[in-house]
Simulated assay, not measured.
Amino acid sequence: MIRKMYLMAIVLFVTGFTVKAQENVIKANPLALLFGTMEIGYERVINQKQSFQVDLGYTSFTSGNLKYTGFGIGAQYRFYVQADKNAPEGWFLAPVANYSSSSANDFKTTVLVAGGVGGYQWNWDPITLDLYGGPAFFNVKSDDSAFNYGFDGLGMRLGFSLGFAF
């Protein structure tokens, strides 16, 4: 009798995992590697139409006698707006905020970004493709004006990632 109860509990436990909707996505931007940067993200579904995403980035490369390193962190709160799809799939809108800090030899640059994006995330169980873009305000502070990235103020924020949903 106890053996049957254990077996039944295991079957219910496993079945619960297989029919449960995907609530997590681990993402990476493969294009960032071309620029010496590793970008990863984690999206967590909050409810049927909303999710929260945290992004982390690390940069390290050398150019001539310049050794460049940096890190960044960002967040998005996504509202999935397509009636026939639930998070994490379909059209979405999201406010975004990012902070990054980098240094090269003896100078430092920080960038604060705030804005909004719209995009679409495909979900081919378990692979995802995420594309988004939108306006953002950039606040750049640098010890060396050559490394202010040529922008400070209103600009565009674009994103691309491949992921694994579970």
Rank of each mutant, 00 (worst) to 15 (best):
Y68F: 14
Q22V: 00
G90W: 01
G41N: 04
V25Y: 00
T37N: 11
S60R: 13
A28W: 09
Q82P: 03
P30H: 02
E23A: 11
A32G: 06
V14A: 13
S60Q: 14
Q48C: 00
I46N: 02
D84F: 04
V19T: 13
F71V: 12
A97N: 07
N29M: 00
G74K: 09
Y77M: 06
L31G: 02
K27T: 08
T37V: 10
V81H: 02
I40C: 03
K85G: 01
N86T: 08
L56E: 04
Q76T: 08
L34Y: 13
Y80L: 04
M8Y: 10
V45P: 03
T15R: 11
T18W: 09
Q50I: 01
Q76G: 00
L31K: 01
S60H: 14
L34G: 08
V14Q: 08
Y58L: 12
A21R: 10
G64D: 06
G90N: 02
N29P: 01
V19A: 10
G74C: 04
V19G: 10
K67T: 12
L66N: 11
G70H: 07
F71Y: 15
D55N: 15
Y80K: 02
Y68T: 15
P95K: 09
L34E: 06
E89S: 08
E39R: 12
F71L: 15
T59E: 06
S63G: 12
Q48P: 03
K27L: 02
G16N: 08
M8G: 12
I73C: 03
F17N: 13
G90R: 05
K20S: 11
F35G: 09
V96F: 04
A28M: 11
I46V: 13
A28R: 08
S63H: 08
E23G: 14
Q76H: 11
P95Y: 06
N24Y: 05
V96K: 10
A94Y: 00
F52Y: 07
Q22F: 06
F52R: 10
Y77F: 12
V54G: 09
L33E: 00
A28H: 01
Q22M: 10
V81N: 13
L31R: 03
F13Q: 08
V96A: 03
L12S: 13
N98L: 09
Y58N: 07
T59S: 14
A94K: 05
N65C: 09
I46F: 10
L56Y: 11
V96L: 15
V19P: 07
F71S: 14
V14N: 05
G57E: 11
Q82R: 12
P30S: 05
S63E: 12
A94H: 03
Y58G: 07
N29H: 01
F61W: 12
Q22N: 12
G72C: 05
Q53H: 06
G64P: 11
A94M: 03
N98G: 13
I10G: 11
G41C: 02
E23H: 11
K49Y: 05
T69W: 07
A21I: 00
G36Q: 04
L33P: 02
V45W: 01
F52T: 07
E39M: 12
R78C: 01
Y99L: 11
Q82K: 08
G16Y: 10
E43W: 00
I73N: 09
F71D: 07
K67C: 06
S60W: 05
F17G: 13
V54I: 15
A9M: 14
L33I: 09
A21C: 04
T59C: 06
E43G: 05
